[in-house]
Amino acid sequence: MNNENKLTAIRRYVFSIFNNDATGHDFYHMKRVADAARTIAEAENANSFICEAAAWIHDIGDGKLFADQSEAISDLRAFLLSNGVTEDETRRILQAAKDVSFRKGNIPETLEGKIVQDADRLDAIGAVGIARTFAYGGSKGQLIWNSAEKDNSSIQHFYDKLLLLKGLMNTDSAIRIAEERHRFMEMYLEQFFSEWGR
């Protein structure tokens, strides 16, 4: 099976899992991350198939989204192997997806992992990142903003994570994209607080 056919199968698998997600981790998040990973991989001379495949599946097994993380990864591994992805490709895809999480604070070991991490982080900032922040916060019952309850607000998430991501990119390609998206978030927050009336 050629790589395009493998990616088509992976896309369908991901759609079956995430198409109804309302937390900002939906199929279209996976698609944007996969598209960005492919673009960055081409610019950074990395393996674009491994990067794109890992980007499609990077949230499978995430503890925020799956009750049984190990079962989700086991099912994914079996799916990949049954759809023409070789043992070596499967190992590399799972490795590239493993250390993406911001919360774990890991820097991936492989270039492909660094690219997938960058692509995922890029989707957390800018206009789409802002929309995803409020989608996730709403799904978890978070306040939009309350200066007395910062820890339980979507706006605080900008300061705890999103505004830090520009300085945590691994590749030159991602750094360039992150600069513009970071500026947009700063402008958004300035406008938000001017309307909210601190």
Rank of each mutant, 00 (worst) to 15 (best):
H157E: 09
D59F: 02
A67R: 01
D160S: 13
K31D: 14
E4C: 02
S74G: 07
T90K: 05
F66C: 09
N170P: 10
E71A: 15
V128E: 13
G197Q: 06
I177E: 15
V116M: 09
H58Y: 01
E180R: 05
A131G: 11
E52F: 02
S101N: 06
Q156P: 01
D21N: 09
A55M: 08
I130A: 01
N19T: 09
V116E: 10
L111R: 09
K114P: 11
V128S: 09
F27M: 13
R132T: 11
E190P: 05
A127W: 04
A53N: 06
A124T: 08
A53S: 09
S147C: 08
S70V: 09
H29A: 12
A135Q: 14
A22K: 12
S194P: 05
K104I: 11
H58S: 08
A148W: 03
T133A: 13
L122K: 00
I50Y: 05
D118S: 02
I93D: 06
L164Q: 08
T133V: 15
R12P: 04
Y159N: 11
D62W: 00
T86F: 05
S153K: 02
A174H: 04
H182I: 07
A119W: 01
D75T: 11
G24S: 11
A78E: 10
E42N: 11
V116A: 11
A37P: 12
G167F: 01
D160L: 12
Q117R: 14
N45M: 01
